[in-house]
Amino acid sequence: MTNILGVALPAAMLLLTSTIFMAFVRLMKGPSFPDRVVALDIMTTVAMGLIGLYAMESGEVIFLDVALFLALVSFLGTVAFAYYVERRQLRTGSGE
């Protein structure tokens, strides 16, 4: 069991880290504003996964609380961005 974890945890962390980088590229290049919002949302979600993996590796249960709060805050951020996009559309009258 610990043998499998010893291989699987670093591999999963590597994959998630590369996902963050790819989402970051989308955040920089993203042609439209909603693309960037989605990229940011992906980055926080993957960060939650990383925190969960790190909690498994270190055996600290307290890190799971961190993931919980990150989930709440990122949800709020995405909702706020959506609100902003919709308001901008209402003002200019055109979807971007």
């Binding site: 709060f69 709440l72 805050v73 709020l76 909702v79 706020a80 609100y83």
Partner: peptide, 12 residues
């Protein structure tokens, strides 16, 4: 901060 975020969610 968590309480303030709760109220800001209500605000949105």
């Amino acid at each position: 901060l968590v309480a303030a975020s709760a109220f800001s969610l209500y605000m949105i």
